[in-house]
Nucleic acid binder design. Structure first.
Lengths: 205, 205
DNA sequence: AAAAATATCATCTTTTTGGATGATTGATTT
DNA sequence: AAATCAATCATCCAAAAAGATGATATTTTT
C-alpha cells in the first residue's frame, strides 16, 4: 500500500526538490503540488492525499490557517509543516493547528521518509532542530495581560512612555510599570531585545 | 560547449530541486553543491564552475560577503544570487557585490535556464519580481553600510552603546554615531521602531 | 583628480529608560 | 474568605539614548 503525498509551497525549487527526492521511492505516490492555499483547497475537493507537505508562508494565506481548514475538512489527512525557520512559536502554532509533524527545508532524504513513515503510523514527527527548539524552555513566549499587550504594541511602534501614558489615559509611572513588567516577563535587557522577540513571535497581536 | 554549474545553499531541498531541474539539460553540467561559504571556497580551490547559484543566507557567512570573495578570487565565475525574499536592499547588495543576476526560489525552469544563458552571454539577469522591486523608487528599506549592519545586528540583540563599542573595538561616540545614522536612515524615532522594521525586513543579515 | 561616502572620534544637553521599592484598589481564582 | 493577579500610582536615581554639531582620515565612486 503506497502513500499519496501532495505539497503546498510557493517555491518551485522546493517542490521540485521534494518531488525529486521522493520519486524513486516505490511506496510513495506523488499526487502533485499547489503554490497557494486556495488552489490547495481546490485540489483537495477532488483528491485527498495521505500526507501534505505544507509551507508555513504562502502568498494568499498563512500555512497555519490553511492547516486548520484542511484538518477540519479532511481529518484523515496528515500534515507536515515545512519552513526555513526554526522558530519555536511557529512550530507550536502549526502543531496546535493540527499538523502531525514539522520539517525544516534543509531536511535530508532520510528525514523526509522518516517523517512520512511516522505520521502514517499515527505518530508525531519533529525534525531534530524543531525538537530541540521546543525543548528550550528559556525561549517560551511569556503570558502577558491584555493591558501589557496594548503597551507592547505601542512600544513596538516607537512610542515613548509619556506618549503611551497619554494614549492610554494612564500616568507616566504606570506606563513605565507596564514597560518594566514586559521587560521582566520577556527576560529582555532593554526595548531592543524586547521588540525583537515580540516581533518574531508576534506577541502584541 | 556545456556550462558547469555549482550551488551554495543550506537547504537540501533547494539543492535537490535545482539539480533535478537542470539534470536533463544536455548543455549543463552539474558540478555539485556546498552547504556553507567555507566549503564553497574549498571546492573552488579545486574546480571553478562557470556559474554559481548562491543563497543569500548561509550558516557561516552571508552570501553577500561570499560573493565578494568569489568575484575577487575568480573573476570569471558568474554568480546568480538566490533567495526567498524579494527585498530591494538584498538585491542591490548582491548585485553590487559582483553578482551577475538574482533569482527567487520560486523561479521556474525557464527562468533558471534563461538566467544561466544570460550570464554566460555576459548579460545581467534579474527575475521579474526583482526587477519590479528595484524599480520601486520608494526605498522601503534603506541601504546601510557593512558596519551599520553589524551595529544594527548588535542593537537588535539588545546590546547597548558601551557594549557595542567594546565588541567592535570602537569608541562609544562612534558606536553612538552608527546608532544615530541607523535611526536616520530608517526614519525611526527610537530603537523600538528601528528594531521592528529591521526584524521585519531582516535588514541585519 | 575631485567628489562623495564611510568610519572614526569629540563635546554638550535634554529626554528617556530602566532598576529598586512600595502601595492601593478591584477583579478573579482557589 | 483568602490568596493571587491586574492595573493603577508614587519616588528616587543612575545609565543610556538621542539631538545638535563638528571634525578627520580613509575608501570608493565619479
Amino acid at each position: 500500500m503506497s502513500t499519496n503525498v501532495f505539497i503546498v509551497d510557493d517555491h518551485f525549487m522546493v517542490i521540485e526538490g521534494i518531488r525529486s527526492i521522493l520519486q524513486d521511492e516505490e511506496n510513495i505516490n506523488w499526487l502533485g503540488h499547489a503554490v497557494n492555499a486556495s488552489s490547495c483547497l481546490e485540489f483537495l475537493e477532488k483528491y485527498q492525499p495521505n500526507v501534505i507537505f505544507m509551507d508555513i508562508s504562502l502568498p494568499d494565506e498563512s500555512g497555519i490557517d490553511l492547516c486548520k481548514k484542511v484538518v477540519k475538512l479532511y481529518p484523515k489527512i496528515k500534515i507536515l509543516g515545512l519552513s526555513t525557520y526554526n522558530q519555536q512559536s511557529i512550530i507550536q502554532d502549526i502543531m496546535k493547528s493540527g499538523a502531525s509533524g514539522y520539517l525544516l527545508k534543509n531536511a535530508s532524504k532520510e528525514e523526509l521518509l522518516d517523517a512520512i513513515e511516522a505520521v502514517m503510523a499515527d505518530e508525531e514527527y519533529l525534525c531534530f532542530e524543531a525538537e530541540e527548539s521546543l525543548q528550550n524552555t528559556e525561549n517560551l513566549v511569556p503570558i502577558i495581560t491584555k493591558r501589557e499587550k496594548e503597551v507592547l504594541g505601542l512600544i513596538c511602534e516607537g512610542f515613548t512612555n509619556p506618549e503611551i501614558a497619554e494614549k492610554l489615559f494612564i500616568s507616566l509611572p504606570t506606563a513605565n510599570t507596564h514597560r518594566k513588567s514586559l521587560l521582566a516577563k520577556f527576560g529582555a535587557k532593554n526595548v531592543a531585545s524586547l521588540v525583537k522577540t515580540a516581533v518574531e513571535n508576534k506577541s502584541f497581536l
